[in-house]
Design a protein around this nucleic acid. Structure first.
Lengths: 146, 146
DNA sequence: CACAACCAAGTTGTGCACAACTCAATGTGC
DNA sequence: GCACATTGAGTTGTGCACAACTTGGTTGTG
């Protein structure tokens, strides 16, 4: 009956909410040792992978707006991990550069996922399947919002 | 090689983070119409299902602590949806009761999941499989933290 | 050229999450 | 009976998310 379906719906969304917070809290001790929060870690991952990027590009990569990114980047800058500079070509835009210290943090961050990979209790294939389902779900949902 | 595995790890956790925010934003318009935030909606779901519960029980059901729940419940109380009362048997504990208005909101909330169930682009079986994987992942992770 | 439309960041305000702490009530061992 | 630990809520402080708005820069059009 319909009520089952509706209840299942709620459970999926709650499961997602709970799982996301659980994974973040699993990362927390390792990231604390690096002096990073989880969203800050995501920003650094983008910088380590791509090098200097515009704030706008960070926002597209992580699906975050300037209201979240501006203060976060200010804190990363205060921590000496990134540098911000206005674009010469377009004075509206700001490019984010990893500093030497920010780049060096990459080596220490390499060990973070290694510490956590065993904690999921799932095999690689299962994790990959889960990831693909999550990505598909996210894409379907964001497509609805056009 | 190891780097692939580590990168996959990151992607699973980012996929989770992104999917959770996407689902919450999908709920937002419907919940706005009810005057609820998503965490407030979760609290009301527990109250609708179980009736009056202790703050501690709410915390166990949603995996939230008093630092999150106390101000949230204060806002629900200010909105007239719940009432809080000290336990007679144990003066430390506080029981949360849905008000008449809070109970009546259930009928309007019934239509919320219906509006959203189609937006996932996934069938019931797929959603159930996804939910089970998420629950298992959450359980494995929280078991690590003992 | 003027000017409206648009755009990238940043700011402000609200509401979670979560750590660390306080406080009062309860439970425990001696 | 009484020190002492434990427990349940609440408070404080920090850092996201996100809506709404502001500011300064750019672009398109008449």
């Amino acid at each position: 009956m319909a009520a089952d379906e509706l209840k299942l719906e709620n459970q999926v969304c709650f499961a997602l909410y709970a799982a996301s917070r659980a994974v973040t809290s699993l990362y927390r001790p390792a990231l604390d040792a690096l002096g990073l929060t989880y969203p800050q870690y995501l920003v650094m991952l983008v910088l380590w992978e791509r090098g200097p990027v515009l704030v706008k590009e960070l926002g597209q990569a992580l699906d975050l707006d300037s209201g979240t990114l501006s203060p976060l980047l200010k804190r990363l800058e205060a921590a000496g991990l990134v540098r911000r500079q206005r674009c010469a070509e377009d004075e509206r835009a700001v490019r984010v550069y990893p500093t030497d210290e920010g780049g060096a943090l990459r080596d220490r961050a390499m060990s973070v996922p290694r510490k956590l990979s065993g904690a999921t209790g799932m095999g690689l294939a299962e994790l990959e399947a889960l990831r693909e389902n999550l990505v598909r779900l996210t894409e379907e949902i964001t497509a609805q919002q056009d």
